[in-house]
């Protein structure tokens, strides 16, 4: 039977290295690698060597993932609940993107400058709005987790990113591969794939 946990985690991460798949799937690296190799034998994933290489799905892998995820949702009988959560996600999404943009670029005198992070008051205003948005996002995550338990990974990873940012590691808002924005971006992709909506 196809290992949907690792296949679908990689589908939503896109194209990445072993450590990130393991972290997102909440599995050990050794276990994750063994499962990836099994999927590769079935022609569903592939590993590209080179400086920009990593693990990714083949076209067959994407098709198989879409089929299995649709079957999973049908079996759970929670399509309506996931679709409702996606609508609420789409209300929050532009605000999250505004916040990431405000984190990188700072409008002043009609010029959008790169935010050089020398104004602590501005940065803390942005962070406070991230925290406020995260409170509202938590409701969406709870609905999703109740509908399909595998969505629990997003709450865990979003909280981890925000926790590190509020503790002073501000690059975890929008700049690292495990940043709040990147996890959010994967959640967006996951919702589209789960509901079978083309981007």
């Amino acid at each position: 039977m196809t290992d949907l946990r690792v296949l679908h985690t990689l589908r939503c991460l896109g194209f990445t290295d072993l450590a990130r798949v393991a972290d997102a799937a909440a599995l050990s690296e050794a276990d994750t690698e063994s499962r990836l190799i099994d999927l590769a034998v079935d022609g569903l994933v592939t590993r590209t060597p080179g400086p920009f290489g990593g693990w990714g799905l083949t076209e067959a892998g994407k098709a198989e993932d879409a089929r299995l995820v649709a079957a999973e949702l049908t079996a759970a009988g929670t399509r309506e609940s996931v679709a409702g959560a996606f609508e609420r996600f789409l209300v929050l999404n532009p605000e999250l993107l505004d916040l990431c943009t405000a984190w990188h670029m700072r409008p002043a005198d009609g010029v959008a400058e790169l935010n050089d992070h020398t104004d602590a008051a501005y940065d803390s205003r942005v962070l406070a709005r991230f925290v406020d948005l995260d409170r509202r996002a938590a409701d969406v995550c709870t609905t999703l987790e109740t509908a399909l338990p595998r969505f629990a990974s997003y709450r865990r990873r979003l909280s981890a990113a925000l926790g590190r940012a509020t503790a002073g590691e501000l690059e975890h808002l929008a700049d690292t591969t495990t940043s709040y924005h990147n996890v959010w971006f994967q959640l967006h992709e996951d919702l589209l794939v789960t509901l079978g909506i083309p981007r």
Binding site: L13, G14, F15, L97, T101, H104, F185
Partner: peptide
């Protein structure tokens, strides 16, 4: 997210749709 390795490899990025507050821009 399927484009992340392409974004990492590229020297610059152009999208044909979307605004300055899109995932691609961030």
């Amino acid at each position: 997210p399927l484009d992340m390795h392409g974004l990492a490899a590229a020297a610059g990025i152009v999208t044909t749709v979307g605004g300055p507050t899109s995932h691609a821009a961030v």
